[in-house]
Amino acid sequence: MSGKNTQVLMKQHPKGWVTEADFEIVARDIPKPGPGQVLVRNIWLSLDPYMRGRMDPVRSYAAHLKPGDMMGGGTVGTVIESNDAALPVGTYVNGMLGWQEYGVATAKELRVLDPKIAPVSTSLGVLGMPGCTAHYGLMALGQPKAGETVVVSAASGAVGSVVGQIAKIKGCRVVGIAGGQEKCDYVVNELGFDACIDYKGPDMHAAFKAATPDRVDVYFENVGGEIMEMVFGRLNGFARVSICGLIAQYNGQPFPFTGMRHVLVNRAKVQGFIISEHMEYWPGAIMEMAGWIKSGKLKYREDVADGLQNAPAAFIGLLKGKNFGKQLVRIGPDKA
């Protein structure tokens, strides 16, 4: 196939907050699929907080980007050229093809999607990595019991919103933490949380104490910083804490965390996790969540930026909490 393939590269390692100057948009030849490969035209790109960590030249659970590397990320697209009979032209697939219009991959690198089950974009959100992250971090690590208090930060986001809804399905009292009254109203009125604390409000600490009269049994951490410090101070004995993300600290802002005393005093269990290390967990979690979506027990929201050229600005907005729901970029038309 002739033509050009738009890609977004990391131009340089960010210094503090990410800016659009840290990215470069280039046009390269559309790649050709080799034996056993397919060419995919990407329709949707997922933007996720973990991408910020990959932009720093520091040791982490995955290799960091070098200047000139293409930004990585989850995608959904359609097969437009195929050298694999198992993936005919027109097949919808989910993979990690990155910030580009076209990509090549083999069958083992892709997940085939059925648009009749759910919109294909959900494979990047509630029925994909964020949803499985929420399910695993809450159910496998948090192990909530009916009647317990579950707290989740970034409660209106792609992961936090699913965490809270699953906790409600399991009979827990759920308290969310989000930025702004609109997000808090959505979390309570639409998603069914029992309460939501606006961290931008006048007295976050007093509001949180009032919302957790029985303190906290399970905490799902997405933010870090002052919010994590506050919640650790309300832990119950033998509380469970799942550390999923620390978005408040991804841009180099230091925070002197002193909450380990509460871990000791309350004999709390604190576990960090990376969902890509638990791929065997995904199929069961996705099946269960798909059933909840069909029955109306699990709702989701998507925040869509149009055009690959707008991915950097949307990503910066995500890091600053400007998105409302799962942040996606619509790269091309979706006929599903």
Score class of each variant (00 low, 15 high):
Leu246Gln: 15
Gly245His: 11
Met230Glu: 06
Gly225Ile: 09
Ala239Pro: 03
Ala248Gly: 06
Gly252Cys: 11
Phe208Leu: 15
Tyr250His: 12
Val231Asn: 02
Asp217Cys: 06
Tyr219Ser: 07
Cys244Val: 00
Ser242Met: 01
His205Pro: 00
Val218Gln: 08
Phe220His: 12
Arg234Phe: 10
Gly233Phe: 03
Ala207Val: 01
Ala210Asp: 14
Ala248Tyr: 04
Ala248Ile: 04
Asp214Trp: 01
Leu246Pro: 05
Ala248Arg: 07
Tyr250Phe: 08
Met230Asp: 12
Asp214His: 14
Tyr219Arg: 11
Tyr219Pro: 10
Gly201Thr: 04
His205Tyr: 08
Asn222Gly: 06
Asn236Asp: 08
Ile227Thr: 12
Ser242Phe: 04
Lys209Gln: 14
Met230Pro: 00
Ala239Glu: 01
Gly252Trp: 07
Arg234Gln: 15
Leu235Asp: 00
Gly245Tyr: 09
Ala210Met: 09
Phe220Glu: 08
Pro202Trp: 05
Pro202Lys: 06
Met230Lys: 12
Gln253Thr: 15
Asp214Leu: 04
Val241Arg: 11
Glu221Thr: 02
Met228Thr: 08
Met230Ser: 15
Pro256Gly: 02
Asn251Phe: 00
Tyr219Asn: 04
Phe257Cys: 10
Arg234Ser: 12
Gly233Asn: 14
His205Phe: 03
Phe208Trp: 06
Arg240Phe: 10
Gly224Phe: 08
Asn236Gln: 10
Asp214Phe: 02
Glu226Phe: 10
Arg240Trp: 09
